[in-house]
């Protein structure tokens, strides 16, 4: 009898723990959905064509994408988000161009070449960089990196897309590095052994066997790095000069979506067209990072699994 009640209490306890853990898991899912719904709701007047600016003129999605100027606080406000989207893409791509080769190189080194003690210093050090407050990186870029790059390349603008992208790379490197390193070390030992047995040198093994085998993981790492760079606010707010120019040059100042939201959200009048547009920008950011994460996740799961089970 006593054993029965004992089992019974264990079951009740299990049930309680199971349910609460499940609830926690679903709460985090609910948060994502709620944030998404909230952002979309605040942008809604714009999406259904009900947003008007102070002069009573309608603000439509077509105008947002076609207007060349971002001048939201003006006697004749214009909300041209094309320059902001271009700015975000430019800075993000620059940061990836800088960060990807560096972090993949570093990952190859620590995963394949480095002796154990070196690896145990380098890996945590780069991972600490991931937890570095972005406002500090931004400050560093504003004061030190901007002057350095200006003198190095003889740039006309001190604060520009290049400086911002390079500063952003500091935030992106740890992400790409860590995930690439994980992908490389997760490869079966046979890959290296077979390659070496066939007479390949160490660097040939690394470049032509291990790196190609880890491609899905590396690709996912770059995608997540892209998401991080695209959404980063403080670094670009401080280092890019924030002028919304519709140009392809990388040595001029740029204004990104995230910096715009960061700088203007606090001041905007609730329910105003400007407010709706900022939430629409938030919706864009959210969508981009969400889809990148989904793609990265699917890529790792499907492709990597296929390769290792031999189906590919």
């Amino acid at each position: 009898m006593s054993t029965f009640t004992g089992k019974h209490t264990i079951r009740v306890g299990e049930w309680v723990i199971e349910t609460s853990i499940r609830a926690i898991a679903f709460v985090s899912l609910a948060f994502i959905v709620l944030i998404f719904v909230f952002v979309l709701r605040e942008a809604a007047p714009l999406l259904i064509g009900k947003a008007t600016d102070d002069s009573g003129a309608a603000v439509t999605l077509a105008k947002l994408f076609s207007s060349p100027f971002w001048m939201p606080v003006s006697n004749h406000p214009t909300y041209g988000i094309a320059a902001l989207i271009l700015g975000s893409l430019k800075v993000t791509l620059i940061s990836l161009v800088v960060a990807t080769p560096l972090s993949i190189g570093a990952a190859l080194y620590t995963a394949v070449f480095a002796p154990r003690w070196t690896k145990e210093i380098i890996k945590p050090a780069i991972e600490i960089l991931a937890g570095f407050p972005s406002v500090v990186i931004g400050f560093f870029a504003l004061i030190v990196m901007a002057s350095f790059f200006q003198h190095l390349f003889g740039l006309q603008y001190r604060l520009n897309a290049l400086t911002g992208g390079a500063a952003l790379a500091l935030a992106v490197i740890p992400i790409i590095f860590t995930l690439t390193e994980d992908a490389l070390t997760a490869l079966p030992k046979q890959f290296t052994e077979a390659s070496v047995a066939l007479g390949a040198r160490k660097w040939e093994t690394a470049l032509f066997v291990l790196l190609p085998a880890a491609t899905p993981g590396v690709f996912a790492a770059v995608l997540l790095g892209f998401g991080r760079a695209f959404g980063e606010t403080m670094i670009v707010l401080m280092a890019t000069g924030n002028a919304a120019l519709l140009s392809l040059g990388i040595t001029g100042p740029v204004r990104t979506i995230s910096a715009t939201i960061g700088a203007e959200m606090a001041e905007v009048v609730f329910g105003d067209a400007h407010y709706n547009v900022l939430f629409f920008l938030g919706f864009l950011l959210f969508s981009v990072s969400f889809s990148l994460n989904v793609v990265a996740e699917l890529f790792i799961r499907k492709r990597l699994m296929k390769r290792f089970t031999g189906a590919a």
């Binding site: 100027f69 971002w70 001048m71 003006s74 006697n75 004749h76 320059a83 504003l142 004061i143 901007a146 002057s147 603008y157 001190r158 604060l159 707010l237 401080m238 000069g241 924030n242 002028a243 919304a244 120019l245 001029g252 100042p253 204004r255 700088a263």
Partner: peptide, 24 residues
Amino acid sequence: GSDYAPATQTLPGTAAVVNAVSKD
């Protein structure tokens, strides 16, 4: 009442503006 030139770089805070001009 006219708008600023689009190339105007906007910085967070007067101190940042002073710092930028002092270096440019």
